[in-house]
C-alpha cells in the first residue's frame, strides 16, 4: 500500500470508466482532497469517517453476536437475545442513515489548518460534493470554520465533469487543482 502512495496523484492521475458516475465522483473527490492536502499545509482529520466506522462496527457486532448466540442456544431459548439484537441492529442502521444524511452530508474530506502557536483551536476546512445520477454537473462546496471565532464561510461551484477528464477517462489533475485553488481563495477572501 505505502509504495503506491509514493507516486503522487498529480504525476499519475487516476483513469476511470467515464460512463460510471460513481467512479467519476470518486476520482474528482480524491483529486480535490489531494489538492487540499498537498497545496496547503493542512492536516487531514478522520473524525467523520471514524464515526461512521464505529456505528457500522457496532451494528455488525450485534449481528455477529446474534449469530453466535443462536448457534450456542438454538432458537426458542435464544428468543429474548434475538429480539434485542434485531432491534438494536435496525436502530443502528437508522443511526447510520441519520449520520450520513445529517452529519456527513457528502463531506469527503476534513482538513485542519493547525494554529501555528498551538493555542487557538484549528481552522476546519470541509469539502463536500454531489453528483446526481446521469448528470454531468459535479457540485463542490468548500467551507471554512474559523477556530478562533467559530464563524463559518463557504463557497460553492458547479463543475461540468467532461472538462476534467480526457477522452480516455484520465483525470486532468491540473484543471481540478485550478478550480479548487480558485474556490479556496473565494472562501478566504469572503468577508464574515
Amino acid at each position: 500500500m505505502s509504495k503506491k502512495v509514493a507516486v503522487s496523484m498529480e504525476e499519475n492521475p487516476p483513469k476511470v470508466n467515464k460512463w460510471d458516475g460513481n467512479a467519476l465522483k470518486n476520482a474528482l473527490d480524491d483529486a480535490v482532497k489531494d489538492v487540499l492536502l498537498t497545496q496547503f499545509s493542512y492536516v487531514e482529520s478522520h473524525k467523520l469517517l471514524d464515526g461512521r466506522l464505529i456505528i457500522s462496527s457496532v451494528a455488525v457486532g450485534f449481528s455477529i453476536f446474534a449469530l453466535v448466540w443462536d448457534w450456542l442456544y438454538p432458537f426458542p431459548q435464544s428468543r429474548t437475545v434475538m429480539c434485542v439484537c434485531v432491534v438494536s441492529y435496525f436502530v443502528m442502521m437508522g443511526v447510520l442513515t441519520w449520520y450520513t444524511t445529517c452529519l456527513e452530508r457528502g463531506i469527503f474530506c476534513t482538513a485542519l489548518n493547525k494554529d501555528a502557536a498551538g493555542i487557538d483551536p484549528d481552522d476546519v476546512w470541509n469539502a463536500s460534493s454531489s453528483l446526481k445520477r446521469f448528470d454531468n454537473k459535479y457540485h463542490l462546496r468548500l467551507t471554512q470554520r474559523m477556530g478562533k471565532s467559530g464563524k463559518g464561510k463557504e463557497a460553492h461551484t458547479t463543475l461540468t465533469v467532461e472538462n476534467f477528464f480526457d477522452e480516455t477517462g484520465r483525470l486532468l489533475y491540473g484543471a481540478v487543482a485550478k478550480e479548487v485553488l480558485r474556490l479556496h481563495s473565494d472562501v478566504e477572501n469572503k468577508k464574515n
Binding site: 461512521r52 462496527s57 455488525v60 450485534f62 449481528s63 446474534a66 428468543r79 439484537c85 434485531v86 442502521m93
Partner: peptide, 22 residues
Amino acid sequence: YQLLNFAMIVSSALMIWKGLMV
C-alpha cells in the same frame, strides 16, 4: 468501511431472518 459495508449487507439479511423468527 468497504469490508463493513459488505458485512452490513449480509447482516441485514440475517437480522431480517432472525426478526421473522422472533
